[in-house]
Amino acid sequence: METNSNSASSKPSASSLRWKILRRAVLPRAKNPEDGSQLGLKLISRKAAKGFNLIPCQRLQHDHESRDARFCYTLPIQGCPKLVLTQRMDNNADLNDFEICNRHNIDNTGLVCQWPSEDVLAYFCLSHADMFRSKRVIELGSGYGLAGLTIATATEALEVVISDGNPQVVDYILHNINTNTEAFGETRVKSMQLHWNQKEVSNLLHAFDVIVASDCTFFKEFHKDLARITELLLKKAGASEAIFLSPKRGNSLDKFLVEIEENGLLFSVTEIYDTNIWKCHQRFMNGDESWPGYEKDHCYPLLIRITR
């Protein structure tokens, strides 16, 4: 999910940016029959060749006729169960995907791929497991749910709700929850379709100790709704907070934080918040070929902590 800051003067609409992203999912891709294994790795929506790859994963055997593939994630904590996630192959988007996006007024980025900031968020949550223990947690715009599932597996949270506004994505979340249910211990885990402009949230009103989200501030048209739902979901009592990991991307993040303030919330932004994540960032900045075209503004997620 990258944009070109040089085109800022042309002020493309959020919808045109969204369609540009989705276009990559439906363009035909060249097939090399002599290298089926490598082809599969290139086509998988996780885009494993580009990312921080802080949580090791490997593709499991799958039916090449299927539109989906399964990946096994090894959480870097001794004795922690592995997670198996089913994800869409990024050469299998169809017109129905676009129609659903238009009908629900949502973007399709959670279905197109698992974005690098989700990997960073999952790793950050593992490194700060204590903040989730015995807490009610919700992940917003979760995509395939790696961060939420990681919290459910490794932090002894009381409850984890993994949500997205796209009903197709929520189907994948539910499938991934059911696949990994034995890893959650006593933690209650459920999926939920939650649109950020949803008016009726009485059953969720001020119900969560912790909100987590990654790469959710890209589209400016969703800023007001995202800030609003954050305020509505955060508990009023106790040390509740929202943890967002998002690249700066021009003035997009700054504009979102204005909306956060207008909803009566406080925030802090931290650039260096984990030694290993920062080392990865520096390596990419120095030209690591595993992520060509890496740019700090568009790729490196800042840590935003939002409180009352």
Rank of each mutant, 00 (worst) to 15 (best):
A157I: 00
I100P: 06
V160W: 00
A152L: 06
F132M: 04
Y123M: 04
E118K: 04
P116H: 05
E118W: 05
G79Q: 10
I151E: 07
I162Q: 03
R136Q: 13
I44G: 01
T86K: 15
L60E: 14
C101F: 12
A154L: 02
Y144I: 15
G148N: 12
T150Y: 09
L140P: 13
D107A: 10
P76G: 11
N96E: 15
F98V: 11
F98A: 13
D97A: 05
T109N: 10
M131P: 00
C113K: 11
I151T: 06
L54M: 04
F98P: 02
Y123K: 11
A93W: 14
A93F: 15
S134K: 10
R103T: 11
Y73T: 06
A48D: 07
D97P: 05
S142D: 11
L83G: 10
Y144G: 13
E65I: 01
R88T: 13
G110C: 09
N102R: 10
A154P: 04
K50V: 05
L111Y: 14
A69M: 06
G148W: 09
L95Q: 14
F52H: 04
Y144T: 15
R67C: 07
F71M: 14
G143V: 13
C113G: 14
G40W: 01
I77D: 10
R136E: 14
V84P: 08
Y144R: 12
G141F: 10
A48W: 06
L158Y: 03
C101W: 07
H62Q: 11
I162T: 01
I138L: 13
D94K: 08
